[in-house]
Design a protein around this nucleic acid. Sequence first.
DNA 1: TAGCTTCAGTTAAAGGTTTAACTCAGAGAG
DNA 2: CTCTCTGAGTTAAACCTTTAACTGAAGCTA
Lengths: 151, 151
Amino acid sequence: MEPRWLTDEQQDTWRALVGLILRLPSALDTQMRRDAGISHFDYLVLSTLSTAPERTMRMSELAAEAEASLPRLSQVVAKLEKQDWVRRAPDPADGRYTLAALTDTGWEKVVATAPGHVDEVQRLVFDVLPKAQQRELKEISRRVTRVIEGD
Amino acid sequence: MEPRWLTDEQQDTWRALVGLILRLPSALDTQMRRDAGISHFDYLVLSTLSTAPERTMRMSELAAEAEASLPRLSQVVAKLEKQDWVRRAPDPADGRYTLAALTDTGWEKVVATAPGHVDEVQRLVFDVLPKAQQRELKEISRRVTRVIEGD
DNA sequence: TAGCTTCAGTTAAAGGTTTAACTCAGAGAG
DNA sequence: CTCTCTGAGTTAAACCTTTAACTGAAGCTA
């Protein structure tokens, strides 16, 4: 069974994509650590919570939205809890779930941090891509993540 | 100075892209660990070396091609050296540089591992993207990484 | 030649992530 | 009612990555 080797064209594309997935995360991290003292993933957790009803979500829901494993989320939320940005409590409706809630100081942290983050996203991504490519990027990302989810 | 908030459309795109950059690396890692017992980054280092003249490169060159920091590369190469896949020696032409060379067993490891890797790349990326989107993906990735490099 | 500087590379420590084992609440079967 | 099963969440250990400090080779200046 002969493997399906990449064409030269595909190799170029693949190398470019690998460059992207290796560099973009660390670029986002750099900006967040420099300007807000937290990692990009910390911010993702806080900002995801900030958009939820009551600014509260179950840990497992939050993990799914933030594309994280539950152990990873658990560690990070423990850290955020020490800063008093998040608080955890068992779900009164079903003790198996844990509700994570954004505190007022956590909300303030998001508000203070969001502008620098969106500026960076604009600068790194949207400023350099014409509208048509922005549309393609959404479609491409969804198609690839859909396959991965299917596994 | 009002921050340049993302439009709804841009938010969708951004979320999709974040999903991609969080999931694709771990999907690649999963396949490599399962089928070859090494990380995707280990493979990237080995395969990059395998394409170099004499299968030999300076550490700093290799770090640049593999988009890695030098400390990270140094650790990984130390590990690969223990498996006798790579050997290091000072550059005779200039003792400040270190040459990393792929051994014969290292070459065999790449040959044995490549088919499973390319199959996975085809499956996750190229199989789900029409040619036009493949072209866009290359262009998009290059534009974004170019900005990041510029920093 | 001595001494300063620069830069490649390694090493050590701190922090983050993953994997596997464990705890515990609720649901269902007998 | 009790036993078992399932699945959410935490914890511990191994591993990996980053940051900062260190080593050592070559070049430059006096």
